[in-house]
């Protein structure tokens, strides 16, 4: 699937983007649009239910390096973020900490990046009070963006770095958010493009290989990127580079990243003196 194809279909059929995404799936792999819609509806429901349960909670994570960050943020709001982003970031961090404590999550697109999209959709529900149908339509559009990236490039940090995981999650979230806010297809494209461009080159450098540092907080800050990109696009700011080309560029950047920056825990913050010391302590403590 290319974004160009979606654009052509939307302009040709005058159907809304989420319906075009569903019909495209049917053309590509024979998936019944209604069944797919039901499956996605179930996943979104579960995602929102879990978000409700974990929001601002404390967690005992596997390594203990994270676990109370969502809780801390939930207690403080100096007005720097605004209600919407505050809610979204608390959700994203809590979801990530829930993941790191062997909680139940919806991989979206991966487990390591599972906080970003629930962050945005939970805030749309809680703060913007959008109905489920609108959220689902946005979720379908987000899924379409993810699929374009997965098909053209990859969503694996081990293959292309964190730009492919958190970067993809952010582009998906921004696209879904823009669509839920009644953005047109050009705005959706710009929001996704601006997000992915902002996180291009982001390396995968989990300390000790554990999905906690920097992953948990990265889920939080990525939400900020998604909201800013979306608001920019909704204001009419256009991405100069079309989404399909941004994805190609991301793939190329992924290829040129050294192995040390692709989940091997040999580079980035994973190779800092503090990270090495922490890792030694963790391995000793866990026995």
């Amino acid at each position: 699937m290319l974004f160009e194809d979606l654009k052509r279909l939307v302009n040709g059929t005058q159907l809304p983007l989420h319906e075009v995404v569903l019909s495209y799936e049917m053309l590509e792999n024979g998936e019944d649009p209604q069944t797919l819609k039901n499956d996605l509806s179930k996943l979104l429901k579960i995602m929102l239910e879990i978000s409700d349960k974990i929001y601002g909670k404390k967690f005992q994570t596997l390594t203990g390096l994270t676990g109370e960050n969502g809780f801390l943020l939930s207690k403080v709001d100096d007005g720097l973020l605004g209600e919407f982003i505050h809610c979204a970031v608390v959700t994203a961090i809590s979801m990530s900490e829930n993941n790191a404590s062997m909680g139940r999550i919806v991989a979206c697109p991966t487990a390591g990046s599972c906080g970003v999209i629930p962050g945005i959709f939970y805030a749309l529900k809680k703060i913007k009070k959008l109905d489920f149908e609108t959220l689902l339509n946005g979720f379908i559009v987000a899924g379409g963006i993810g699929e374009i990236i997965a098909a053209k490039a990859t969503i694996s940090g081990a293959v292309s770095g964190c730009q492919a995981e958190i970067g993809t999650a952010t582009a998906m979230a921004a696209a879904g958010l823009t669509y839920c806010m009644n953005g047109n297809i050009e705005m959706v494209e710009s929001a996704a493009s601006i997000s992915l461009k902002s996180l291009m080159g982001l390396v995968c450098d989990p300390v000790g290989g554990f999905v906690e540092v920097p992953c948990v907080k990265r889920n939080g800050t990525a939400v900020g990127v998604a909201v800013v990109a979306s608001q920019m696009a909704l204001a009419g700011i256009e991405s100069v580079i079309p989404f399909d080309e941004v994805v190609d560029a991301m793939k190329k950047v992924g290829k040129s990243l050294p192995e040390s920056l692709k989940e091997t825990a040999l580079g980035g913050v994973a190779s800092t003196p503090t990270a090495r010391k922490i890792l030694k302590d963790i391995i000793e403590n866990l026995g």
């Binding site: 995404v21 596997l62 829930n98 062997m102 919806v106 991989a107 979206c108 379908i140």
Partner: peptide, 12 residues
Amino acid sequence: ILDVVGPVMIGP
């Protein structure tokens, strides 16, 4: 799309 959204699983 279901390759990028889901599955529901236990982390991390």
